[in-house]
Design a protein around this nucleic acid. Structure first.
Lengths: 120, 120
DNA sequence: CCGTATCCGATCCGATACTG
DNA sequence: CAGTATCGGATCGGATACGG
């Protein structure tokens, strides 16, 4: 993750640190159940693969949104959990989740909401 | 803007509609002063160019976050303003702005905060 | 001044393979 | 199971030019 040297406003910085297809979803998942191992998360996030998950989590750690606890020995085990900053970011994500629900209701996508296919 | 057909959760939809380098900043600017013309916005957002601005605004209109009012006649004039949904989205953006300020303070980037270079 | 089209480099993301 | 490396296609974003 490259932090640019010139930001015109703080919002851009936060954006940079939380952008990408998966990061908000990872934070959302960790807010509901924590701590979680990478394999747990991979199961709970439909469509993600191991590479994307670990890559995005490493960036979230760098951004101070999540932390990990590593257990020595075999089988390997690591657990991730939200930091205080991560919880704050989650407030923003929660609002966006609400907007998404509204949008889906307005656009005949209730099937997704009810199917249980999504993570709530 | 292509809306995917399969979302695993509403958050992904909102993300799709508000992603990109400029959209949150456009909403932020419109929240402080509204309505604004494209040329006003272009002046107030450092680094953006006309193409990106109009392109991103068109997508925000499609997403129902902003609306525009077109005045007939010459010189051409159009004004953009936030919708109710846009204001809701702004709550999330405001939180992220706050996180960005914290991050900058922790990382010796106060110069950006104080320089007046950013839009507050 | 508002808006659209094109071109092209940078970045993202998914598949796959590999290590400890 | 956790994590890293590589590669290629898709997408994004900035420059530039053109039209209403």
């Amino acid at each position: 993750m490259k932090i640019r040297d010139n930001y015109t406003c703080p919002l851009e910085l936060t954006q940079d640190l939380t952008k990408g297809k998966w990061k908000p979803i990872i934070l959302w998942q960790l807010s509901k159940s924590s701590p979680l191992s990478p394999s747990d998360l991979e199961k709970s996030i439909k469509g993600i693969n191991q590479k994307m998950l670990l890559e995005q989590m490493a960036e979230l750690v760098e951004a101070g949104m999540i932390n990990k606890k590593i257990y020595e020995g075999y089988p390997l085990r690591t657990e991730y959990y939200l930091t205080e900053r991560g919880f704050k970011m989650l407030e923003a994500i929660t609002i966006m989740q609400g907007i998404g629900v509204d949008l889906m209701k307005e656009n005949g996508m209730e099937n997704i909401l009810k199917s249980g296919g999504f993570i709530e």
